[in-house]
């Protein structure tokens, strides 16, 4: 489903070229739950952005749903963002001007889901995340953890086929984190392909596979043995 072949990503400064990703080969099959790990600055977020069609590789070939990514037109990308990909960002990126309810609702609006249906879907998620009481608050009125929950809710509400989660549990205490991981695992079992970034070894165990990225190179790539 997703295939990266010799992907490079670099930035050209005045006299030198800085590589962030170097010859990355990675294939992710439908139904996998991949965890990417690695030290800070290793290029994890960059890799995720490339996979999510937000950024383009500097060299190499990338096949998204077996289609060469560089040939995907802008219009088609928008379509993929609407129906295939869900994002959870490291820095949440909630819309300050919208309240919790509206933030979660956003992807549905772009998918032209009908109002009534939207209401039901958002209400369901709010319930699941124990956030019903907060639905009229604005992001600035939430704690970091609550904001992260909203961001997760927003990413999964449209049931994307591929969920890209950049440290989804970074701001959560371990109990909440586990709750989220369980949820992701459940979604994965229901058929959602998930690629997550985390620094937490325990949470990596919820997935099916671990990829270790160091200085832009894939150093390890193995299946999880005793999946939680």
């Amino acid at each position: 489903m997703i295939q990266l072949k010799k992907i490079d990503k670099y930035y050209d400064a005045k006299f030198q070229r800085t590589f962030i990703l170097k010859g990355v080969n990675l294939e992710v099959k439908q139904g996998e739950f991949v965890t990417i790990m690695g030290p800070s600055g290793a290029g994890k977020s960059t890799l995720l952005n490339i996979i999510g069609l937000l950024d383009e590789p500097s060299a190499g070939e990338y096949y998204f749903w077996d289609e060469p990514a560089h040939k995907i037109k802008e219009k088609q990308k928008v379509q993929y963002h609407r129906s295939h990909i869900g994002f959870i960002f490291q820095a949440f990126h909630l819309i300050d001007e919208l309240n919790v309810y509206e933030n979660i609702e956003t992807p549905l609006v772009y998918r032209s889901v009908k109002g009534k249906e939207r209401k039901a879907m958002v209400a369901d998620l709010l319930d699941r995340f124990n956030m019903v009481a907060k639905k009229d608050l604005f992001p600035s009125q939430l704690s970091g953890g609550q904001q992260q929950l909203v961001a997760i809710a927003r990413a999964i509400i449209g049931s994307p086929k591929l969920l890209l989660a950049d440290e989804p549990t970074g701001n959560l205490h371990s109990e909440q984190g586990e709750m989220i991981m369980k949820l992701l695992k459940k979604l994965n079992e229901e058929g959602m392909t998930i690629i997550q970034v985390t620094h937490n070894e325990d949470f990596a165990q919820y997935g099916t596979r671990v990829v270790k990225l160091i200085d832009g190179l894939i150093r390890e790539d193995y299946q999880v043995e005793n999946r939680k």
Binding site: G52, L54, E74, K75, V78, Q79, H81, R82, S83, F87, H93, L94, I95, D96, E97, T106, P107, Y110, R111, R154
Partner: peptide, 16 residues
């Protein structure tokens, strides 16, 4: 002021 919001919306599938 809305740069971030615009980015988020685009990621969520908003057209230009």
């Amino acid at each position: 002021r809305r740069v971030k919001e615009i980015g988020v919306r685009k990621v969520n599938g908003a057209r230009v």
